[in-house]
Every structure is written in structure tokens, then in C-alpha cells.
Write a protein that binds this DNA or RNA. Structure first.
Length: 259
DNA sequence: ATGCCTTGTGGTACAAGA
């Protein structure tokens, strides 16, 4: 089974590239983030034509997550248990489903904006809710993984120049502690191969030639329980999809499983 | 060339992204 995650930065703007990538990479399951559209506006028919069942969770111009599956799509859950709100809005940032016996969550962790900002505190609270959901669902022998845009670089090596991040989110100790807590519940960081250069970055800013300079970050992660991680036969970042006109600023992360 | 930001919304700019 091939399972992938991709922050598409608007599913409607990315639709031609999304359809092309689904056809060429042929994932059985794709976790999508940053839909930037309502469920009504989601391009369901075009994706269904490629053989995918769709479960989406979007409300409009910000956020939005989905799971596309050719392997079954059961027990869909929208939102985390006790998911915190931001400015009184519980945002569409998490959706779970069971696909061919594999439980997956597609998540778009809040950005945080800057340390000290209310959005940063919200990010940490949100990660606590994610941990509670993981604790409730990742046990037993069923393959389980949280895939998505975590907006956290797990180590200093996961950003192109750590010296530029002294005042920034994505690399702070509390954010990394939240990832460590997820690992302590039994999840493993499934680190993909880089297809070029030495680090498997998944995001490059649109500005300042970040992609040609490989000024990237690894923030799109796959956190898997032992049954999932033990079945991984390969994992890579499809950086080819970051090239050219009309690309998302994130590249897909692809994981192959023996199940 | 992988190439100097992109998106949706609302209105002829702006917030948000990380």
C-alpha cells in the first residue's frame, strides 16, 4: 500500500497538478492539507473519476484537510477530541479515516506565527489534543499514523540554516517537546529519503529562490505506530512536484507499506 | 533551468503562510 501526504496550498488552484500527480504516483491513500475551500467547493467529481473515495473537512479560505482513498474509507472522524478553538472558531485541521485496515489522520497543525503570539499558545494546545487522540487510537496491532503538515522541524538539521531561526516558530523547544511527547506514546518519525541533496526537505518558500537554493524545511511528517512503521518498505519526498509553474510550496511525502 | 511568491476574498488591497 502506498500512503502519501501533501499540503497542496489550495486544492482548487492545485487541481490540475493534483490530478496529474495522483495519476503518476498512484498512491492508494493521500492525506491532503490546506484545501482552502468549503466541502461544497471541493472538486470531488474530478478526483472520484480517478477512483478515489473522498472525505473532506473544509470551511472556506483557510485550512481544510481531506483523505483520498482507493483502499476503503471507513469510520471518518472530523476534528480531534476536545480540539481547541482559535478566536472562538474550531478550525478544520484534522480528519481521520480507516483505509484498508490502516488508521490514518490528515493534520494541518497551526502555524503559531511567532513565539509569544496567541496563535503559538494555540498551536501547543492543539498538539496536546492531537496527543490525546493518538493515545486513544494508536494502540493494539492496527497500523496507525498521523500524516500532515506539522509546522515543526524536528531537529536543527531539518532546516537549511538554523541560525536564521533564533526568533522563529517551528524550531522552539516547546514545539519539539510536543513531537517528543508523540514519540513517547509509541510513534516513530518515518523519515523519508531525499531524492536530491542530503536532507529530505518538504517545504520551500515561494520567495527568494528558496527552492533552487534548496533553502527548505522538513515540516511535513509521518508519525507512525509500530505496526505501521514496521511495514514501511520505502519513503521519499517527491521534490519533482515542487518544480515548475503552479506548484504548491510543499512537496508530497510518499510512504510504501508491505501491507 | 527548479528561477526572485501565492492564495482567496473582496474590492482596485489585504491577511496569512512558515
Amino acid at each position: 500500500m502506498r500512503i502519501a501526504t501533501w499540503n497542496v496550498n489550495s486544492v482548487t488552484a492545485r487541481l490540475p497538478r493534483l490530478l496529474g500527480w495522483l495519476s503518476s504516483a498512484q498512491p492508494d491513500v493521500l492525506c491532503v492539507q490546506e484545501l482552502k475551500c468549503t466541502d461544497e467547493a471541493f472538486p470531488r467529481a474530478e478526483i472520484a473519476e480517478l477512483g478515489y473515495d473522498v472525505a473532506c473537512h473544509g470551511t472556506g479560505r483557510w485550512n481544510g484537510v481531506a483523505i483520498l482513498s482507493k483502499a476503503g474509507l471507513d469510520d471518518v472522524t472530523r476534528g480531534l477530541t476536545d480540539q481547541p478553538a482559535y478566536e472562538d472558531v474550531t478550525e478544520p485541521r484534522a480528519i481521520g479515516a480507516t483505509c484498508g485496515g490502516v488508521r490514518v489522520w490528515s493534520v494541518y497543525v497551526p502555524n503559531g506565527r511567532e513565539p509569544g503570539h496567541a496563535h503559538y499558545a494555540y498551536k501547543l494546545r492543539w498538539l496536546e489534543a492531537l496527543q490525546a487522540t493518538v493515545l486513544a487510537e494508536s494502540g493494539a496491532g492496527r497500523p496507525f499514523a498521523v500524516l500532515g503538515d506539522f509546522n515543526i522541524a524536528p531537529t536543527d538539521e531539518d532546516v537549511w540554516d538554523i541560525s536564521l531561526f533564533t526568533e522563529s516558530t517551528h524550531v522552539t523547544e516547546p514545539e519539539r517537546k510536543a513531537l517528543a511527547m508523540l514519540r513517547e506514546t509509541g510513534l516513530t518519525d518515518v523519515v523519508p529519503r531525499a531524492l536530491k541533496y542530503d536532507r529530505p526537505y518538504t517545504y520551500w518558500d515561494y520567495r527568494q529562490l528558496a527552492f533552487p537554493k534548496n533553502n527548505g524545511m522538513r515540516i511535513d511528517l509521518v508519525y507512525a505506530n509500530p505496526a505501521f512503521a514496521g511495514a514501511v518498505s520505502d519513503a521519499y519526498v517527491d521534490r519533482e512536484e515542487r518544480k515548475g509553474k503552479g506548484a504548491s510550496d510543499h512537496a508530497p511525502v510518499v510512504v510504501d507499506l508491505t501491507v
